[in-house]
Write a protein that binds this DNA or RNA. Structure first.
Length: 578
RNA sequence: GUCCCCGUAGUUUAAUGGAUAGAACGAGAGACUUCUAAUCUCUUGAUCCAGGUUCGAUUCCUGGCGGGGGCACCA
């Protein structure tokens, strides 16, 4: 496809040379509207003035010279609109494209743009003792998809998770654990019960911190004690809660389809972060103010941030120095280090990265922050401090129940039913997170996010399932597999929209990967699923008496493959049956 | 107060400076003796306001208006 694109581009450029434009830079794009052919260029509009012709005149002349060149892949070139030139490709090109998909299979769409680069992606970053809430689900879905897109571009990806296991919120939760009325979970209780208790303890400790001066002082003291590990009872509660939380997170990662390669815990980098801050305090990067060590971002057009408190404790900012240098210590060959968080931390990260660049220019340069919007309800921002959150686990469960309700009439074994419902539920949630550009907020309305009508994860999964089902029928009727040796029907009308679109997949992937924009994949997959479903509705694919049936089967196979590869990039699985 | 982000059908949203602004939900009408109707077909409807740059602006610039987020010892 890329070769064809370059060829067409070159002929247009040659045409422009004849018109007197020496160094023409022609932009050739896929036509957004299939009625405008497969490729389009605005070259005539761009160069009309220079040549002294009207855009349409120039376009007509360019088409003439392109036509003289007789590219074998091009069916026709024509002038349209204000002076656009549209290129329609021959059906044979699409047949070859289908063959290509059939050969490459799960590798179709993969590129070598980032070959041999090592890229780290840090995402999800939950807090122990606190619930895994919907925000973490967002970070996870986005981080995982960016990891996969990067991997698909040839890079070696290190998936990194940075759980918070120290800090004031932990002190609040441990305090809540000690002082809250009600029974502490037993070892035999389920993980959900244990982590639910921790969540309550946190809410309890958090409101105590805000409502009473004595409690606040006590919790601040406990924070220091925990940091120093100087109290056996507190340590014991801490260790227990930590284990419960981490085990619970692992369960969720497994369901969501993430396997982290590495973890760096906040407690591991706190000390180092403080050391770095103090070291660079001497060098003038940081300064002392009111007993604390701060980074004066205001001098750099940002805002001031405290790195080490007047009590001598490193804040999150200082820990960030420890964390990001640790990443490069573990992987000296890291080409890029990406951090995925919510956009409320945008300004915070500008300060942190500015400080990091002054601590280590190379590391600062290679570290990037990308952010996503927040999941919010109609009522406003969620806060785990107040306890009005929907946990990730609760959401998954609700969606899964809805799926099961929908599956009631279908024939499944109990085990398969559970497994399939989970795949569909995860698909529905991830789709609703990834369907739009990642910067914006998602207004979370359970009913809609979870609806399986129209644009949705299940819609994509269902289209794949239908295709699989067609292929199963073809196998049963003894069509030859693999079907790559189909006879391409010589006499054919227009190529259909499906074949024209599925061969664009590699370019979509490239764009999504370079822009960190999984929603391009979503939009594209939704488009081809729609095309497949329409085609499926009016066409009989498996038909012994139809000489073009083998090609239709091949096209179905190619569609299923592209859908599967695309869904994989989104972290969504494809059930065989649903 | 100040800095950052955002403003597209009733709703949720798409559109590397290009063509008739593309979907989905909702509403209305229709389609299963045929490979899974979680589907398909048709109808309905949108770029916050005012300037500017450009052959061309949803996109870039300026100013309003509206919404969200950040701004010292939380993460």
């Amino acid at each position: 496809m890329i070769e064809i694109k370059e060829k067409i581009k070159k002929t247009v450029e040659d045409g422009l040379k004849k018109e007197g434009v020496k160094t023409a830079k022609v932009e050739l794009k896929h036509s957004a509207d299939l009625a405008h052919g497969d490729f389009a260029t605005n070259a005539a509009l761009v160069y009309a003035k220079k040549v002294g012709k009207s855009p349409r005149e120039l376009a007509i002349d360019l088409v003439r010279s392109v036509t003289e060149n007789q590219l074998e892949e091009v069916e026709k070139a024509e002038v349209a609109g204000a002076g656009f030139i549209n290129f329609h490709l021959k059906p044979k090109v699409f047949a070859l494209g289908v063959t290509d998909i059939l050969e490459k299979k799960e590798r179709f769409g993969k590129s070598e743009h980032l070959l041999d680069e090592k890229v780290m992606v840090e995402y999800t970053d939950p807090n122990i003792f606190k619930p895994f809430h919907i925000g973490h689900l967002m970070s996870n879905a986005i981080g995982e998809s960016i990891s996969r897109l990067t991997e698909f571009s040839g890079a070696k990806v290190v998936r990194m998770c940075y759980p918070s296991d120290t800090g004031l919120h932990i002190a609040k939760a441990v305090w809540g654990y000690k002082n809250k009325l009600g029974s502490v979970p037993k070892d035999s209780d389920s993980l959900s019960e244990k982590t639910a208790f921790l969540g309550e303890a946190y809410v309890f400790g958090s409101s105590a911190y805000e409502n009473s001066k004595e409690n606040k002082a006590e919790i601040d003291e406990l924070n220091k004690i925990l940091y120093e590990k100087s109290d056996a009872e507190a340590n014991k509660i801490y260790e227990k809660g930590r284990t419960w939380s981490l085990e619970h997170f692992e369960e969720l990662y497994a369901v969501l389809g993430t396997k982290f390669d590495e973890y760096i815990f906040e407690s591991e980098v706190a000390g180092r972060g403080k050391e770095i801050t103090l070291e660079f305090l001497k060098k003038g990067v940081f300064e002392e103010s009111e007993g604390a060590v701060i980074f004066d971002g205001e001098k750099r057009g940002l805002h001031k941030r405290v790195f080490v408190t007047s009590k001598g404790l490193p804040t999150y900012e200082a820990k960030e120095m420890g964390l990001n240098t640790e990443k490069f210590k573990r992987h000296e060959d890291l080409e890029r280090s990406i951090i995925v968080t919510a956009s409320e931390q945008d300004d915070y990260f500008k300060v942190v990265l500015s400080a990091l660049s002054e601590v280590d220019e190379k590391i600062g340069h290679k570290t990037e922050h990308i952010s996503h919007g927040m999941m919010r309800f109609a009522e406003g921002k969620m806060s785990s401090r107040k306890g009005n959150v929907i946990t990730g686990e609760a959401l998954l469960k609700q969606v899964k129940n809805l799926v099961k309700e929908k599956m009631k009439e279908r024939d499944f074994s109990e085990e398969k039913r559970e497994e399939t419902a989970e795949i569909i539920a995860v698909g529905a949630i991830k789709y609703s997170i990834l369907r739009q550009a990642i910067g914006g907020d998602i207004v979370f309305e359970l009913e809609k996010s979870v609806s399986f009508e129209g644009d949705s994860g299940p819609y994509l999964q269902y289209s794949h399932t239908r295709a699989s089902s067609v292929l199963a029928k073809a196998r049963a009727e003894n069509f030859q597999f693999p079907i790559s040796n189909f006879q391409f029907p010589e006499k054919r009308n227009e190529p259909n929209s499906l074949e024209r679109l599925i061969i664009r997949f590699p370019e979509i992937v490239e764009r999504a990967a370079s822009e960190y924009a999984p929603h391009h994949i979503v939009t594209y997959l939704t488009e081809i699923a729609g095309q497949f479903n329409s085609w499926y509705a009016k066409e009989k694919i498996v038909d012994k008496g139809d000489p073009s049936s083998p090609y239709k089967i091949a096209l179905t196979y190619a569609f299923a493959q592209v859908m599967k590869n695309g869904l994989w990039l989104l972290g969504i699985k494809t059930p065989e049956k649903m």
